[in-house]
């Protein structure tokens, strides 16, 4: 008898991200240089004495407008592969407008990455609307196709979530990568590529060192814990033998093994008392430690009518427990 149970080890991941979000939101101005559209004006002044006294003259003023630099970086905010199970999972990324002008960025999630054990289905890309670093369903805005961020100020940092569904066919320890790409809405290309008049205030937009495109990978690892129960019986008849006769005591042993990865929630071992036998009161035990028959503080409860039940709670792989109880053949 094998039961499959599921895990959720993503909790620690989420807590870690929340702890980081405080300083991630803080941004520093001017880290990426003079803001696009700034006018650089230069005037020289000469002073001299022409014999009649000191005089001063100005040169003409020359001005240069700083154009828009298109640069973007994208990183995974997950500290490692995100533990998941078949079903919904969230990958977290951080996008920074490294340019010097306001810019929107197109987002493209690619779940079909070479080497994947399985490919997820991308359900949506979401923006961390409330800035807490954690995806909140119904709060954080889902982008509609074609997915793109709002216009981001220079240096601003945005947390982006990719919401995926892990297929039911995924098995324990399998991994899958999702690539998220961000590209400047104005355009991308080799560094130095100029988009004439498409920058701030009609200035040019120039592709910076990042190519105005960035890709980051998020990784998922499936942790499916499986529970295996093995039941065995030993007979001891009234005559010292092992015959199944009235009065024979049958000792049942149920061994529960949790293998794979992760945690099984609310693991409970139950068994009915076989027809033609009667539960021997006071014989229920967990790992050779007696449990009372009554429904009380300990993990076990047993009766002839309802059978036995032992609650093991949440257990983490690898885990083994052994439940024993006796019945008497009628």
């Amino acid at each position: 008898m094998t039961r499959n149970a599921h895990i959720n080890i993503a909790l620690s991941t989420i807590c870690g991200a929340a702890a980081l979000s405080g300083f991630m939101i803080a941004t520093s101005a001017q880290a990426n240089g003079v803001t696009a559209g700034t006018l650089i004006e230069n005037t020289a002044v000469a002073s001299y004495d022409d014999g009649a006294g000191p005089r001063t003259i100005n040169s003409n003023t020359v001005s240069v407008r700083v154009d828009e630099l298109l640069d973007v970086t994208l990183t995974s905010r997950d500290p490692g592969p995100v533990g998941t199970r078949p079903g919904d999972a969230v990958l977290t990324f951080e996008l920074t407008n490294q340019g010097n002008g306001p810019e929107a960025f197109r987002l493209l999630a690619n779940p079909a990455v070479a080497g994947n054990d399985f490919d997820v289905v991308v359900r949506s890309i979401a923006i961390d609307s409330n800035g807490n670093g954690v995806y909140d369903a119904g709060v954080d805005a889902l982008l509609t196709a074609p997915e793109a961020t709002a216009v981001l100020a220079p240096d601003s940092v945005l947390t982006v979530f990719v919401l995926v569904t892990v297929p039911d066919t995924a098995t324990d320890t399998q991994t899958s990568i999702v690539d998220l790409t961000a590209e400047a809405a104005t355009g991308t290309g080799a560094p130095g590529t100029v988009f004439a008049a498409l920058g701030v205030d009609g200035g040019d937009a120039i592709v910076g060192g990042t190519g105005a495109i960035a890709t980051a990978r998020g990784q998922l690892v499936v942790g499916v814990a499986s529970v295996e129960l093995t039941k065995s019986v030993v007979l001891r008849d009234p005559f010292g033998g092992t015959s199944a006769v009235p009065g024979t005591i049958a000792t049942f042993t149920i061994v529960a093994r949790v293998s794979g990865a992760g945690t099984v929630n609310d693991l409970s071992i139950t068994d009915a008392i076989p027809d033609g036998t009667t539960y021997a009161p006071g014989t229920l035990a967990l790992d050779s430690v007696a449990l009372s028959d009554a429904a009380d503080g300990d993990a076990g409860v047993a009766s002839d009518a309802a059978g036995i039940a032992v609650s093991l709670g949440d257990v983490t792989a690898a885990f083994t427990a052994s439940v024993t109880f006796n019945v008497v053949i009628d």
Partner: peptide, 21 residues
Amino acid sequence: YAHGGEEAVSNFVVTNPLPAA
């Protein structure tokens, strides 16, 4: 700079403030 006049000038100083950017 160019001197288009008839007399030499002295203490000629050209000062250029750097633009902040």
